[in-house]
Design a protein around this nucleic acid. Structure first.
Length: 279
DNA sequence: ATGTCGAAATCGTTTCGA
C-alpha cells in the first residue's frame, strides 16, 4: 500500500501536475494540503474519473486539506472537533480548515496542514503553538482507539538539524525553534515514528524549497513534510521517498510529494508468525 | 531587508499569507 503526502499550493492551479504524478506513481492514498478551494468548487470529477474516491475540507484562498484514495474512505472526520469537544478547540482554531482524517484499509489516516507561524514570537507563532497543543490532545484521543495510525502532512517544522540546509543560520528561527520542536514532539508521543528516517539517516533530503532566493537552484531546502506511523505499520514499512523531481516542473508547488510503501494488510503468513512469537 | 508564488478584492494593481 502506497501512502503519499503533498502540499500542492492550490489544487486547481496544480491539478494537471497532480494527476500526472498520480498516473506515474499510482498511490493508494494521496493526502494533499493547501487546496485553497471551497468544498463546492473542489475538482472531484478529475479524481473519480481515474477511479479514486475523494474527501475534502477546504475554504476559499487559504488552507484546505483532502484525501484521495483508491480504496473506500470510511469514517471521515473534519477538524480537531472530529475528535475533541468544543471547549477543547477554540473558534479561531476551528475557523482554519487544516485537519481531515479517515479510515482506509483499517488504517486511521490523518492529514494535517500545520500553521506556518510567520516569525518566532509573532501572533501567528503563538497560534501555531496553540494549534500544536490541540494536536497533542487530538492524537491522544486517537491513540486510545487501537487503530493503526498514519499521520501525514505539511508540518512546517524541521525537527532536527539534518532536516535543514543551513542549521547554523536557521535553527532557532521559524520552523526550527525549540518551542515548535518541543510542541510537535510532545504531540507525536513515543509510538509514532517518522518513517523517512527508518530508511535514510543522512542530511540533504528536502521536501520544500522556498520560491524566493533561488532556493531550488541552490538546493536550499527543508524537510518539513512527514509521514508518521504507529509501530504495527513501521514493522511493515518497505520504503519512504521524496519525489523531488516535481519541484523542477514548470509552475511547481514549492513542496515535493513524500511517499511510503507499507506491506498492508500483512500477509496471513506474517500474522501467524506474529502470533507464534507471542508464545 | 529582500527576492516569488497563488488567491481575492480593490478588478489591473494591491494586499495577504506563505
Amino acid at each position: 500500500m502506497k501512502i503519499a503526502t503533498w502540499n500542492v499550493n492550490s489544487i486547481r492551479t496544480r491539478l494537471n501536475q497532480v494527476l500526472d504524478w498520480m498516473n506515474q506513481t499510482k498511490p493508494n492514498v494521496l493526502c494533499i494540503q493547501e487546496t485553497k478551494v471551497n468544498d463546492s468548487l473542489f475538482p472531484i470529477e478529475s479524481f473519480t474519473k481515474q477511479g479514486y474516491k475523494v474527501s475534502f475540507y477546504g475554504q476559499k484562498a487559504y488552507n484546505g486539506v483532502a484525501i484521495i484514495s483508491s480504496s473506500s474512505i470510511n469514517d471521515v472526520r473534519f477538524g480537531f472537533e472530529g475528535e475533541l469537544n468544543k471547549e477543547q478547540v477554540s473558534e479561531k482554531i476551528r475557523n482554519q480548515k487544516r485537519v481531515i482524517s479517515a479510515l482506509i484499509n483499517d488504517i486511521r489516516i490523518v492529514n494535517l496542514y500545520v500553521p506556518n507561524g510567520s516569525e518566532v514570537n509573532s501572533e501567528k507563532f503563538f497560534y501555531k503553538l496553540e494549534w500544536l497543543e490541540c494536536l497533542y490532545k487530538y492524537l491522544n484521543v486517537l491513540g486510545q482507539r487501537n487503530e493503526p495510525l498514519c499521520i501525514v502532512g505539511d508540518f512546517n517544522i524541521a525537527l532536527e538539524a539534518r532536516d535543514i540546509y543551513n542549521p547554523t543560520r536557521l535553527e532557532g528561527g521559524i520552523m526550527a525553534s525549540n518551542q515548535e520542536r518541543k510542541a510537535l514532539s510532545k504531540a507525536l508521543g513515543n509510538d509514532l515514528k517518522d518513517v523517512f528516517r527508518i530508511f535514510e539517516s543522512n542530511s540533504k533530503h528536502w521536501s520544500w524549497w522556498n520560491y524566493r532566493t533561488g532556493a531550488w537552484d541552490r538546493d536550499h531546502g527543508w524537510r518539513i513534510d512527514h509521514i508518521y506511523l504507529s509501530q504495527e505499520l513501521i514493522d511493515q514499512a518497505q520504503s519512504c521517498l521524496i519525489n523531488k523531481e516535481t519541484r523542477g516542473n514548470e509552475k511547481p508547488s514549492d513542496h515535493a510529494p513524500v511517499i511510503c510503501e507499507i506491506a498492508w494488510p500483512p500477509s496471513p503468513n506474517e500474522i501467524e508468525e506474529d502470533s507464534f512469537l507471542l508464545y
